[in-house]
Design a protein around this nucleic acid. Structure first.
Lengths: 133, 133
DNA sequence: GGCTTCAGATTACATATGTAGTCGTATAGG
DNA sequence: CCTATACGACTACATATGTAATCTGAAGCC
């Protein structure tokens, strides 16, 4: 048992795998969805069987990242974890692990790898202006 | 067999796990090192037995991320994969997976999460100036 | 030269993850 | 009513990962 029996499930953000993340993206884009809907959306890019998508959805429910609500004889799935939280967490983890928590070196790396377009640069400048005032 | 038998091992960057990454950090900081040395350095933060570190080193050698050279009856380990390459790859993967390859949204997220210090901001501004000229 | 010791090699084992298939059952169609 | 289906639940299984312990052989110490 993860949390001592009884009591609501606060905190403890269970790790979401890459495959699971793909499913989350489908739900973030639009929800609620049935398993078939999700399989459909995700199936565009990955070649997953419906069974696979169902497994991933179950795991996400077990991890409290997705909630279900009955809809007749089936379920509608809806994200519990918000995309911003997930994305923020993952970004943070990477920056912490690889750059000692500093964002600047990350940016430097992306810049070096030509991963920054002119638009990106303009956007980042705007962001900084906003942060400073 | 990973690459058709015979022929040098070009490309195919095998994925390095988080635990393995910790070992790489030790080697990037200073190399070559013996397994015991690595265990020592890594042991500062993680509570790993020497056996564990040896396993991780072996796996890294199998993944061609680390090379060995005999030193008497033991090995000296030295990174083959460069830190910049690893870090660049991981950053890229994250940005691609979560931000459609755009760096600006990543930065926005870090900013929102207060993950940007004043120093960071100054540093990033300097970076941008450099990029623009 | 035999015993201890230290190093890498091999084996172990639980959990996570990717990827499905099968089971049981409620329901919709005939 | 009975049957074909469509779902979720359960089971499966290979590989990856975290975390070690054990085996084997060479080196050094008495």
């Amino acid at each position: 048992m993860a949390e001592s029996d009884e009591g609501q499930d606060i905190g403890r953000p269970e790790r979401i795998s890459e495959a699971e993340h793909a499913v989350m993206e489908a739900l973030w884009e639009h929800s609620p969805l049935t398993a078939a809907d999700v399989a459909d959306k995700v199936g565009k890019s990955r070649e997953w069987s419906l069974a696979t998508v169902k497994t991933l959805l179950s795991r996400l429910v077990a991890k409290h990242a997705v909630a279900t609500e009955p809809d007749g004889r089936r379920f509608l799935y809806r994200p519990l974890l918000e995309r911003a939280d997930y994305v923020g967490g993952e970004s943070r983890r990477l920056v912490d692990r690889l750059f000692g928590g500093r964002a600047a070196p990350l940016l430097a790396h992306l810049a070096e790898a030509e991963a920054l377009s002119d638009d990106d640069i303009a956007e980042i400048e705007a962001l900084l202006r906003e942060l400073k005032q």
